[in-house]
Design a protein around this nucleic acid. Structure first.
Length: 881
DNA sequence: GTTCTAGAAC
DNA sequence: GTTCTAGAAC
């Protein structure tokens, strides 16, 4: 038997699905005894070597005459540094198993693979080039911020080919002897090789990009100049991204100390000094440096999120451009945006499902637990106690289930199966049985069983059993994700979530209870206390979530239903000591109580809605009449939400007035700005006024005339559809002039707007509309803008245009009507400053350096609109099918 | 509201 | 050199 040895340069390695690793290798050299190949990622290289039997080897030679072999590895069981286990390799047309039980690997062919792979591959890697939208990703962060870990984690699970380019070790060192590399791996260190220069880094990066791979630039990249050369990588037909690991200095130092301590090179103090010095000099990247996307991570959770995003990125996928995460350096503070950021930021610290920290990271965290900021301590608590039990990497957060529906939805965790150690088989039976019992009884609602971990046993069991019972999947589903981030991360809108509470109804403990209390903030604790002091097993306590709670504002959760299930854990109170007769009964009662409580909330909602429709906004309700979808969550928090909205405005107002002034003063001020006769209108600003006063004269420009208003196309539409409903009442120049007596008119204008939207939707059902007024209009005569949210128009030319429709400068008609009916007028502030604020996407809130960049972004952004827009009919679109 | 344009930013 | 912004005139 002829046995050959061959070496492969691994051109790229990426996971295609599950644990299938695809490698593109370049045949380096061969001899007659064996074939070795190896794979590398990072300095801690994936190293796989094998002896190939004659047949397989010949196959490689025949099939890859151009010095290229394509290999897929399935079922990989490996452990860097130990190099043992077995892997299944698919090498072009063959599948083989590699047994790595010892260094003398064996390789045996197991079955034929029928994949018809392209054997005439032409130039090396050309295939990859065409498929891959390349990315050059600069990691920006101090030593110990987790840059390399970031790369490792992404490379581990990404289906796109990534190469890590770093200072310490170049990826083009494939010509090292296999044994030397083996040594490297076995020692888990990168002691070989001198530090690479920046030029080498760039060379490697360019090389990798040309081969169709995406690259990580794993250097500190803390100052702009350092980064400059790398942003030029865009000339290699790659998008340049930055991920900023802006973690607390203490954390970076702790990790650096740990690391340097291990190698025995640097004293802890020295590491701290290095990190501190670097952080002092840091300049955060700006989009204007040439990035198409920047992601700021200020917590470990942010980092995990970013890892997830890049891991999920397939070879052909692209990410939205813009500035994501935390404050960008070029952001001017914008009240609305800061509110948004706060919404997103704060709860990010509240839960952690990052179970894939290395042990050194966890211990570094622990050392900070006692005296670090709350941020760090909360995340390390989670790391230690563990919300999820799963050690595997948290991958995506959902299975593509997107729900924006208004159907009341209850998300609930599996009760008692985690900390209370209830048997999972039995629990899954009970869940399915109870869901089956209630799902139809509850009417038009949806139930979702949520578990944070992928591969969760309870979810699989429940899915299986629910399928067997043919439970309607539109009414009951399971969902993988964090129950406190269902909307923001999973686009799953759940009005109500269930909490597996403790008997004291107190925060803490761990798991779901801790996560929900953290995410909801102290408001939930207070609201809970008002309802009950404790809870008995088998019962439920429904708590309305105050509108100030982040869980409400960010996720749209209106109620939390606390439930307490049976406990089988001896370490916890009221242990049933394996008495499953009693346990099952209690668990059944628990789910019954949960679903009953949910039913009761739904019932109350409907009642409220009906009352609201008859007294509040008859025209609106009539006009909608099932033809157009009102996005309102239809819950009893409506009034509360409005009051929040107002109080936020008041705060903002105070801020903008140099800390002076009560509401009264702000009213005065708004009067001065745009009220009554105090504003003078230029001749050019009178066009609408003339149309309203004498529409017959402008017949050609007018769409519709009634006694009370005129509908016209906006002369310079800022979106595909943009019309104005003009009030004809004299003296009603702008919002500041509106009084309670105009309420009927406002409602009619709104209804007229909705009528026109209906017509537009017949032509293009993909459009989504918003109706509203400019705070300080340029044109005289009160006019309602009815504008589609595509903003696809050549007339949208500047920041002012954008912000006038996408900041608090734009007052939704719904809010105007509500405000006038409750307060008699619209409270206006010095809103003109809002027009010069930074440009942010109206969907995902990412920031963009200029309007052309923003426009190209919004052309692609499909992120759901933020919850506040989806509520109360602020957005109007075609009925969802 | 738009257009025009200087000059800043790239 | 080109792109983009912002202020003035209308």
């Amino acid at each position: 038997m002829n046995i050959g040895t061959t070496w492969f340069n691994v051109l790229s390695a990426w996971k295609t699905q599950g644990c299938i690793l695809t490698l593109v290798c370049q045949l380096k050299s061969c001899d007659q005894s064996a074939a070795d190949w190896f794979v590398s990622s990072r300095a801690k290289t994936w190293m796989l070597a094998c002896i190939v039997e004659e047949e397989a080897y010949e196959e490689v030679e025949e099939e890859a005459p151009k010095d290229e072999a394509e290999i897929q590895v399935e079922s990989v069981f490996w452990n860097i540094g130990l190099v043992h286990g077995s892997i299944i390799v698919k090498m072009r047309h063959n599948v083989a198993t590699i047994d790595l039980s010892e260094i003398g690997f064996s390789f045996r062919r197991t079955e034929s693979c029928t994949d018809n792979m392209d054997t005439d591959s032409g130039t090396t890697s050309s295939k990859v080039d065409h498929q891959t939208k390349k990315i050059a990703l600069l990691l920006v962060g101090a030593p110990g911020s987790g840059k390399s870990t970031f790369c490792d984690k992404v490379m581990l699970s990404a289906s796109r080919p990534w190469v890590r380019v770093c200072q310490e070790k170049q990826t083009d060192t494939w010509d090292l002897s296999v044994y030397r590399v083996l040594d490297v791996i076995l020692q888990d260190t990168i002691a070989n090789g001198k530090a690479g220069t920046k030029v080498q880094c760039i060379k490697s990066a360019v090389g990798a990009l040309k081969e169709g791979k995406s690259v990580f630039i794993d250097r500190c990249n803390l100052d702009r100049e350092q980064r400059g050369e790398f942003t030029k990588l865009s000339s290699c037909d790659a998008e340049v991204h930055a991920v900023v690991l802006d973690l607390p200095a203490k954390l970076c130092i702790a990790r650096s100390v740990k690391r340097t301590g291990h190698e025995g090179n640097l004293q802890g103090g020295k590491a701290a000094a290095v990190v501190n010095k670097m952080l002092q000099k840091k300049e955060l990247p700006k989009l204007s440096e040439g990035y198409s996307r920047i992601t700021f991570c200020s917590t470990e959770n942010d980092v995990e999120e970013a890892i997830k995003i890049y891991s999920a990125l397939g070879p052909r996928d692209t990410l939205q451009s813009g500035c994501f995460g935390q404050k960008g350096p070029d952001s001017k503070v914008q009240a609305g945006i800061m509110k948004f950021l706060k919404k997103v930021e704060t709860p990010a610290n509240s839960t952690s499902h990052a179970k894939n920290s290395t042990s050194s990271e966890i211990s570094a965290d622990n050392s900070l637990c006692d005296n670090e900021s709350e941020k760090v301590s909360s995340s390390c608590n989670d790391d230690v106690k563990g919300i999820g039990k799963d050690e595997e990497m948290a991958e995506g957060t959902n299975h593509g289930v997107a729900s924006l529906s208004n159907i009341p939805t209850l998300a609930f965790p599996s009760i008692s199966t985690a900390d209370f150690q209830f048997n999972i088989e039995l629990a899954s039976d009970i869940i399915v049985e109870k869901v089956e019992e209630y799902v139809n009884k509850l009417g038009e609602v949806k139930l979702v069983l949520v578990d944070i971990s992928h591969g969760s046993k309870i979810l699989s069991l429940v899915n299986l059993k629910a399928a067997r019972k043919r439970i309607d999947s539109s009414k009951f589903t399971t969902f993988v994700g964090d129950i406190t981030k269902l909307y923001s991360e999973g686009q799953l809108r759940c009005n109500v979530i269930a909490n597996a509470a403790n008997w004291r109804l107190r925060p803490g403990g761990g798991g779901v209870n801790a996560a929900i209390f953290k995410a909801a903030g102290p408001e939930l604790e207070t609201a809970t206390k008002e309802r009950a002091k404790s809870i008995n097993p088998g019962t439920a306590v429904a708590v309305p979530l105050p509108s100030t709670s982040l869980l409400f504002r960010r996720e749209g959760v209106t109620h939390v239903i606390h439930v307490l299930g049976p406990n089988m854990n001896l370490q916890r109170p009221n242990c049933l000591k394996n008495n499953y007769h009693e346990g099952c009964k209690v668990l059944q009662d628990t789910y019954s109580a949960l679903f009953e409580a949910f039913a009761s909330l739904v019932k109350n909602e409907e009642k409220f809605l009906n009352e609201d429709n008859t007294s509040g906004k008859p025209e609106l309700a009539e006009s909608l009449d099932g033809k157009l979808k009102d996005h309102a969550p239809k819950n009893d928090q409506k009034v509360k939400r409005e009051s929040t909205h107002e109080s936020e405005k008041t705060k903002k107002c105070k801020g903008s007035q140099d800390g002076t002034g009560s509401d009264g003063q702000s009213n005065l001020r708004s009067d001065r700005i745009c009220g009554g006769t105090s504003k003078t209108w230029g001749s050019w600003a009178q066009a609408l006024y003339h149309m309203a006063m004498d529409p017959e004269r402008h017949k050609n420009d007018v769409l519709e005339i009634t006694n009370e208003f005129v509908v016209v196309n906006d002369l310079y539409p800022k979106a595909k559809r943009h019309i104005l409903v003009l009030a004809r009442k004299k003296g009603l120049d702008c919002l500041a002039d509106v009084r309670e007596e105009d309420l009927v008119l406002l409602r009619k204008m709104h209804a007229k707007g909705l009528e026109w939207i209906q017509m537009f939707l017949l032509e293009d059902e993909s459009l989504i509309f918003r109706l509203g007024y400019h705070s300080v209009p340029s044109m005289r005569q009160l006019h309602l803008h009815v504008i589609s949210q595509d903003f696809d128009s050549k007339h949208l030319k500047n920041k002012k245009h954008w912000n006038s429709f996408n900041s608090a400068f734009f007052h939704d008609s719904f809010d105007v009507i509500h405000e006038v009916s409750t307060k008699g007028r619209v409270i206006l502030e010095d809103d003109e400053q809002l027009l010069s604020k930074e440009l942010r996407c109206h969907r995902c809130q990412s920031a963009h350096p200029n309007l052309p960049r923003l426009k190209s972004h919004i052309g692609n952004c499909r992120t759901p609109f933020p919850p506040f827009l989806q509520d109360n009919g602020r957005l109007v679109h075609a009925p969802t099918k």
